[in-house]
């Protein structure tokens, strides 16, 4: 009797496992040519903007978008290796290089917001009220106040390095300078926990501010702090497997009037101010004026 029962159990278990496998095979059958790989920054995902835009795009066009959110540096590396179809990134110097080298085409301005320097309310380096962001960083360095860096080659990290270059200070390996090697959300959490300063895009900061009681905006408004997002199509000439039509469709969607209108109001209901400013068709030089 026991033997019979045990065999029955074994059969049941096998059948359940087999059903799971079969069910899995069915559900995973996503349409093939319809896939687009979008490599983008953590800020577009963590702010929730893509969660709003992508379903709309998918509904309009029937494409299936695989959003891979990594740092801008990694996103562009994926484009360079033909492992993504379209990029939405914010690291202008690196972007220009990518396009110049022929890996990306049709680079178009999508939107901007700005970077801000946040830090503990006590503000040990006394940077509050200082106009220039480079000056603020200099004061943080001079005060030996803890600064948390992304350290991940992202657009934010690239911007931070440009700002440090302006100050003439090499922060790497300094005791007060720590790198997380993680996304913006994680880095903000670390800064809040350790009461350090960090450079962040305003969108991510606003989106997760409710958990960051320890951090305040201490430096903002410097023209050097503009955070500009472009959409770039990966060059199909270099990589034949790139989904050309899908990539173009997504880029067109990002700069379309309808999408730009959504970007303009995104976040207003939740945070009281928009997280991004739509810029399609504008020139970079005119931003922030």
């Amino acid at each position: 009797m026991h033997r019979f029962k045990s065999t029955k159990w074994l059969i049941t278990l096998t059948v359940v496992a087999a059903l799971v496998v079969l069910g899995a095979a069915n559900v995973f059958a996503a349409p093939k040519q319809k896939n687009i790989i979008l490599a983008t920054t953590t800020s577009t995902q963590d702010s929730g903007l893509l969660d709003k835009l992508i379903p709309l795009f998918e509904k309009q066009t029937g494409y299936f978008v695989k959003t891979i959110s990594v740092g801008s540096g990694a996103a562009m590396k994926m484009g360079e290796k033909g492992e993504a179809d379209v990029l939405l990134v914010h690291s202008p110097d690196a972007e220009k290089k990518l396009v110049d080298e022929g890996y990306g085409v049709n680079r178009r301005l999508v939107m901007h917001n700005d970077f801000i320097i946040v830090g503990p309310a006590a503000d040990p380096a006394k940077i509050k009220g200082v106009k220039s962001s480079a000056e603020a960083l200099k004061m943080i360095a001079n005060a030996n106040a803890l600064f948390i860096s992304r350290g991940d080659n992202s657009g934010t990290h690239a911007k931070e390095k440009t700002l440090w270059a302006k100050t003439g200070i090499t922060p790497a390996k300094q005791k007060w300078y720590q790198e997380t090697g993680a996304g913006m959300g994680h880095t903000l959490n670390v800064a809040a926990e350790k009461k350090g300063y960090t450079l962040t895009d305003r969108g991510t900061y606003l989106a997760i501010r409710k958990n960051l009681a320890a951090l305040e905006i201490l430096n903002e408004g410097d023209a050097a702090l503009l955070n500009i997002y472009h959409v770039i199509e990966v060059n199909p000439v270099k990589w034949p497997k790139v989904n050309v039509a899908g990539s173009k469709a997504f880029a067109d969607f990002m700069v379309s009037n309808n999408t730009q209108a959504i970007i303009k109001t995104f976040g207003v209901d939740k945070y009281g101010s928009p997280l991004f400013f739509p810029d399609a068709g504008k020139k970079v030089e005119d931003l922030g004026k």
Partner: peptide
Amino acid sequence: GGNIKGYSRVLTTATVMETGKGNF
């Protein structure tokens, strides 16, 4: 998997993402 919403997002990858967003 890429942690793609509604497609390859599983419990562990979603946990990492929500932690990153500060949604503890």
